[in-house]
């Protein structure tokens, strides 16, 4: 396990107060499990929106044509063994800050299609893909079971397209105490990386 790399993509908005604590807990859980942990505060990184041009697939395969930090983030993502999608729960989905990085990561998969359980998805570009854990943080409790399920579904749908070998997700409430948050985050991470 030693030497495995995790990358926390912190999609916190504004002052980041909602995701800071859960991010620290996730990093601590991973370090205790022997992982190297990197973290990106996405709101502090200037990443232009994806243009939807597909040039990263059919013109410069594997590299976005926009030469900005979005390329570096995509490179770090595919070179990680685990990605932690940390985000304020946004109607059951991701924040705009997290999504700006995810949109720019599509060079990491191939444009070519294949069937996955009868559904069309993209082919892998790289031999190995990172595992994925989603941590959604809701500002006020209690957590909404429907949004929780929606978030888990979204992370799992992403994991299919990313070819993640394992994935999992949890939703925590900012009003919960640290111990409760740690319990949920640890359970989600251990569920993905193994005990």
């Amino acid at each position: 396990m030693m030497g495995k790399k995790a990358l926390i993509l912190d999609g916190g908005l504004a002052d980041g107060a909602l995701t800071r604590g859960p991010g620290e807990i996730a990093a601590d859980v991973l370090r205790r499990a022997g992982w190297q942990v990197g973290a990106l505060l996405l709101r502090e990184i200037d990443i232009a929106p994806c243009l939807g041009c597909f040039d990263c697939w059919v013109k410069t395969p594997g590299v976005c044509v926009i030469d900005d930090a979005g390329r570096d983030v995509a490179r770090r993502m595919i070179r990680s063994d685990l990605l932690v999608y940390l985000t304020p729960l946004t109607f059951g989905g991701y924040s705009s800050e997290l999504k700006k990085a995810l949109d720019r990561s599509i060079p990491n998969i191939s444009p070519l299609f294949r069937l996955v359980r009868g559904e069309v998805h993209h082919v892998k570009r790289y031999a190995r893909s990172p595992r994925v854990v989603g941590i959604g943080v809701c500002a006020s409790g209690p957590t909404d079971p429907e949004e929780e399920e929606l978030f888990e579904t979204l992370v799992h749908r992403n994991a299919i397209n990313l070819h993640a070998p394992t994935d999992g997700a949890t939703v925590i409430c900012a009003a919960e105490d640290d111990e409760a948050q740690r319990g949920r985050i640890e359970q989600a991470i251990v569920g993905v990386i193994g005990a």
Partner: peptide, 25 residues
Amino acid sequence: GNFMWRRWAARNGVKDRLRDRPYAL
């Protein structure tokens, strides 16, 4: 779809590079 992607890449002269792995370690 795969026919379309390959043809699109061919027009850009990168048909044989569709599976490039620029960020492989």
